[in-house]
């Protein structure tokens, strides 16, 4: 008798990832169509580009005024290029932090207010598709904002001084920031009943995470510099713990993380690792560059908020 061949059953796929279905998400098409029909979309885009262009002009004029006669000096041109690039990225990060939640904090609450959420929940649209559709349409618009700045930003590329690493890191930071702040708005929108409450909560948490942390970092930096210089007996362990905490706080702030990353890139010529000696006046430590921590933290937080939003939409009323 011939031995029977052993048939190995392929393991059952737990998640049925249907890429075609993702592209055919009706919520994305509906939201984008609605957004592009809205006059405010173009007003916002115009305001956003004008603001960034104005800042770039100011830097150009200011540096041109203070260093007149150096127009053809390569060092001067590189400084100017770096300044323009850094400013544009920082303003973009700041504006996206404010526009992102504004686009999404009413995404689900307005469906509730217009009594259309019930209609959607009784269709075959899954909560995941609904939340993903709302988020995607907002993120696509934020990407539009990022891409439309490229002509202004390219002024920096003409002048020079901006490396590939800076371009890649800044693009990653912008993409992750866009997704995070859009998800933040969706998150509050998924469980709060009113758009106003969701908007206030979103902006409240942004103010806390962006500006309160900057204030905290500078205060702590000042206090500890005084403390460490007056008291040399503070143990290395205490200094290290303080350094790590400060590093994490800095690395998770949308304004401080790119600034510190740029400083490390210029001073240490390092993309991934940094020595913290010069930053807090404490004993030196090698830590991951802020942009890595920033991207990891904000990606994980976005995923958690996205899953929580889906759960909030999925649960039937009780």
């Amino acid at each position: 008798m011939e031995p029977q061949p052993i048939i190995v059953q392929p393991p059952k796929r737990k998640f049925n990832f249907n890429f075609e279905r993702i592209l055919d998400n009706p919520v994305i098409a509906k939201e984008l169509r609605g957004r592009m029909r809205d006059r405010r979309t173009f007003i916002l885009l115009t305001f956003y580009l004008s603001l960034i262009a104005a800042f770039v002009c100011m830097i150009y004029l200011f540096l041109g005024e203070s260093t007149s006669g150096l127009a053809f000096d390569p060092d001067y041109r590189q400084t100017l290029g770096k300044s323009i690039f850094g400013t544009v990225v920082l303003i973009e990060l700041l504006l996206i932090s404010f526009i992102g939640p504004g686009l999404t904090s009413g995404a689900l609450t307005s469906e509730r207010e217009h009594r259309t959420l019930d209609l959607l929940k009784t269709t075959l649209l899954t909560p995941g598709e609904l939340v993903f559709g709302k988020l995607s349409s907002a993120v696509i618009y934020l990407f539009l904002l990022i891409f439309t700045v490229l002509p202004i930003q390219s002024l920096a590329f003409i002048l020079g001084g901006v490396g590939l690493a800076e371009v890649v890191i800044s693009s990653l930071l912008l993409v992750v920031t866009s997704i995070f702040f859009a998800t933040l708005g969706i998150f509050f929108s998924s469980f709060l009943k009113r758009t106003l409450a969701a908007t206030v909560s979103s902006y409240g948490s942004i103010l806390l995470s962006v500006f309160a942390i900057i204030f905290f970092v500078f205060s702590m930096s000042f206090i500890t510099t005084v403390m460490f210089s007056n008291n040399p007996n503070i143990s290395k362990l205490n200094q290290d713990v303080f350094t790590i905490i400060m590093w994490l706080v800095v690395s998770t702030n949308p304004i401080l993380a790119p600034i510190f990353t740029e400083v490390i890139l210029i001073e240490d010529q390092s993309i991934f690792i940094s020595n913290t000696t010069s930053l807090f006046g404490t004993s030196g430590m090698y830590l991951l560059s802020p942009w890595i921590i920033y991207i990891f933290t904000y990606t994980v937080l976005s995923l958690i908020m996205l899953l929580a939003s889906i759960w909030f939409v999925k649960r039937p009323e009780r």
């Binding site: 509906k30 169509r33 609605g34 029909r37 809205d38 217009h114 009594r115 259309t116 019930d118 209609l119």
Partner: peptide, 8 residues
């Protein structure tokens, strides 16, 4: 209540 999408 009729669910309205104004922009469609």
């Amino acid at each position: 209540s009729f669910g309205v999408y104004d922009d469609m």
